[in-house]
Amino acid sequence: MKKQWTMMLLATTITLGSTTFIPEEAQAASAVIVSSVNLRSEPNTSAASYGYVSTGETVEILSKVNSYWYKVRTSSGKVGYISTSSRYVSTTSTVPVSTSTTASSSGTVTYSSTAVSKVIAAGKAYLGTPYEYGSDRSTTYTFDCSDFVRQAFKDALGVTLPSSSRTQGDYVKSIGKTSTNWHDLKPGDLMFFMSYKGGSASNYPSNKAGQTITHVGIYLGDGKILHTYSKDSGGVRIDSIAGRHWEHRFIFGGSALR
């Protein structure tokens, strides 16, 4: 009997030293599907689909991955990811916040400085990784710019950003608090750039609104950017921004974290 009781405790909690960790499933919130929605294997639209969760079905929301995705368990026990849009799902209780986030008194989910540090550390772990345009998103042998940024966030926080620099830019804009002055950015913010047109500021328009995003990197603070942009550059690296073409090409930047 004592052995059975011990096994039951281990099934619900995992204890390390004096700290007890409760599985996220134990904190699940319930929700109702208001319109049939795709259940994905990962929190991105290119991930494999498990099929659709039907209108009227109740699911458990295990966590909110980001502003776009919930991790859920269906009534049949299948775990996957669905859109957070109210077009598809209606929550009936508070959605649990990921361990890398905190909730403010207003209910807005915000990420701590620890989360930002994790993203930067995860990115720096790939310094020197070769560049490849259109790199395979399922491996870490090579990266293009957006693949590198995406992998850093995925490794650090389990957050899967959109797969291209343009869609990452759209995502950051959807969160808000962007700036066209790179001096206003904080470490961990994403920086978005237009195509290279030369080393002089005169080669670039003064009004950069509407310019097409062709490059993205992670701002480190102190005028430094962590990114990858060509085979000749040596792959993932750290560069200075001020007075270089990066400053002239910069369109806007902002946080990918709420």
Rank of each mutant, 00 (worst) to 15 (best):
T84P: 00
F143I: 05
Y111F: 13
Y68Q: 11
S100K: 08
T101W: 13
D147W: 05
T129K: 01
T55L: 07
S93R: 10
S105Q: 14
S75I: 15
T160Y: 10
T129W: 05
S98L: 12
Y126D: 11
V72G: 02
S104L: 15
V79D: 13
T139K: 02
K71T: 13
R87N: 14
G56K: 05
E132Q: 06
S146W: 01
A121G: 04
T108M: 13
S112L: 08
S67V: 14
G107M: 07
Y141C: 06
K78Y: 12
Y131G: 04
S112Q: 08
S100P: 10
F143R: 00
Q151Y: 04
Y70I: 14
S100Q: 11
E57R: 01
V159M: 05
G80R: 00
S117W: 06
E132N: 02
S90W: 04
A103N: 10
E60L: 02
G80S: 06
I82V: 15
S112C: 07
T91M: 11
T55I: 06
V65L: 02
G56A: 11
C145L: 01
S100N: 15
F143G: 00
I120G: 09
S76Q: 13
A121L: 05
K64S: 10
V149W: 03
D144K: 00
R87T: 15
P162F: 08
T114P: 06
S54K: 07
V72Q: 01
N66V: 11
T140Q: 09
K154N: 09
S83I: 00
K71C: 12
P130W: 07
T92Q: 13
C145Q: 05
Q151C: 07
F148S: 04
S106E: 14
D155R: 01
I82P: 05
S138H: 02
G134S: 10
A103L: 10
K124E: 15
E57D: 08
G134M: 09
T55W: 03
Y133K: 04
S104I: 15
S138P: 00
C145Y: 03
S54M: 05
S104C: 11
S75K: 06
E132M: 03
D144T: 12
G77M: 08
T99I: 15
K64Q: 14
T74C: 10
A122S: 14
T84G: 00
S135A: 14
S63W: 01
L62N: 02
Y81P: 04
G56F: 08
G107S: 02
S67A: 12
G158C: 05
S104H: 12
G56N: 09
V89T: 09
S98Y: 06
A125S: 10
T102D: 13
V109M: 14
S93P: 14
T55F: 00
Q151N: 09
S146P: 03
V72M: 06
T110R: 08
V109F: 10
I82D: 03
G134A: 02
V159R: 00
F153T: 04
F153E: 00
D147C: 05
S106G: 10
C145R: 04
T58W: 00
K64N: 12
Y70G: 09
S146M: 04
Y88C: 05
C145H: 03
T84S: 14
T58I: 07
G56E: 13
K154P: 01
P96F: 08
T92L: 10
Y141E: 07
K64I: 01
S90T: 15
A156C: 06
F143T: 07
T84W: 11
V116K: 08
V79R: 03
T55S: 08
F148C: 03
Y70Q: 10
Y88T: 06
